[in-house]
Design a binder for these strands. Structure first.
Lengths: 194, 194
DNA sequence: CAGAACATGCACTGACGAGTGCAGTAGTGC
DNA sequence: GCACTACTGCACTCGTCAGTGCATGTTCTG
């Protein structure tokens, strides 16, 4: 009655290869034959498990969203520290190689799969915003009237510029951490209680 | 010796239709037959003028970049006013229907055409940043040590959040102008001279 | 008005890629 | 060891789409 282990194994391998490939080439640019080859699996197996290209794509993203969400929650758990600490963790996460390429791809596919792009936004960046809004008021020495706005200001002071730049250019921009700290400093000046 | 007016006319019509279509569907999703039909021109004419799909794509973007650049310069000319004025103009421009969809498409194609994405960044968002950096120090009552950083802070306080949201979701976010003004207020607090 | 240059319509080629069918093989549960 | 189920390899269909060739019609230019 329990599932044949071969299926689970194939599912995992295919999902990993497909994620890599879809993120790199986008939905239309992706090639199921190539995905199968990169997964070291026959094309027939891909189709036996996932049915068609679009279902595979959705399965890849469902898994990617879960991971992003879990990752974001871990990030939120570390929001007890000081602002500089939060900023550095945020920057490292969002500008890292697991997030930026996924963002690029989803934005590019937003016309074809609008509900997926929206869902991602809710489950990752949106969640970051909500977490920040929940934690910022507990920071000492700050005066925060509107937590949602303050969260946006914090996030975009810290990583707005390199994020936007990074969407257009895969080459990492110069030392995002220094900018993040400059962003935190500006945020403190804007929101200090005086 | 001067050019046949038919060619110029066709060029313009095709470019407009192709722009619309490429921005909507991306490079791979675009269809030359459809572009020709939407332009009200035969497919053969498209190929006679532009040679192939990629050349047409590049021609579309070359024109789009010129327009963006010109538009940005006009925006920069209005940077003598106060911050609130600059912010509102900036928001209206960047979050408008001529910019956001183009950005989405270019980000999605950044893997396939990296040099085009980079070029766009330089000629539009990068130019905005440089213009801001050049004008902000002239604002009264502010103390600006690093104009480049201050420009980034201004820009992303003003439109960071709705811009990022807008990349994932075509539906206009609520009231970006109010947010822009809240961003300006935060910027003033962070950079006021005291 | 004559000839050149461009536009049209349409049929066509060729490549590529999604998805299928099937016969054979190998791993799995009992 | 047996029956079952999944995986493989490969050949195949079918649709789509970029790009071409050509004969005919239309619009410039001189």
């Amino acid at each position: 009655m329990s599932e044949d282990p071969r299926v689970g194994r194939s599912r995992a391998i295919i999902l990993a290869a497909a994620h890599e490939h879809f993120v790199r080439h986008g939905y239309l640019g992706a090639n199921v034959d190539t995905i199968a080859a990169e997964a070291g699996v026959s094309k027939r197996t891909v189709y036996n498990i996932y049915g068609d290209k679009e279902s595979l794509f959705r399965a890849v993203l469902e898994r990617a969203f879960e991971i992003s969400e879990r990752f974001t929650r871990e990030l939120a758990d570390g929001m007890g520290g000081d602002l500089e600490d939060i900023a550095v963790r945020l920057v490292r996460a969002v500008l890292g190689p697991r997030v930026l390429p996924l963002r690029r791809m989803l934005i590019g596919e937003a016309g074809r799969f609008p509900e997926l792009a929206r869902e991602y936004y809710e489950r990752a960046p949106g969640l970051v915003m909500r977490s920040l809004a929940a934690h910022l008021p507990a920071q000492p020495g700050l005066r925060i009237d509107d937590p949602a706005i303050a969260a946006e200001h914090f996030a975009f002071l810290v990583l707005g510029a390199p994020l936007d730049r990074g969407l257009f250019d895969p080459d990492v921009p110069a030392d995002p951490v220094a900018r993040a700290l400059a962003g935190v400093a500006a945020f403190r000046r804007a929101y200090e209680d005086r």
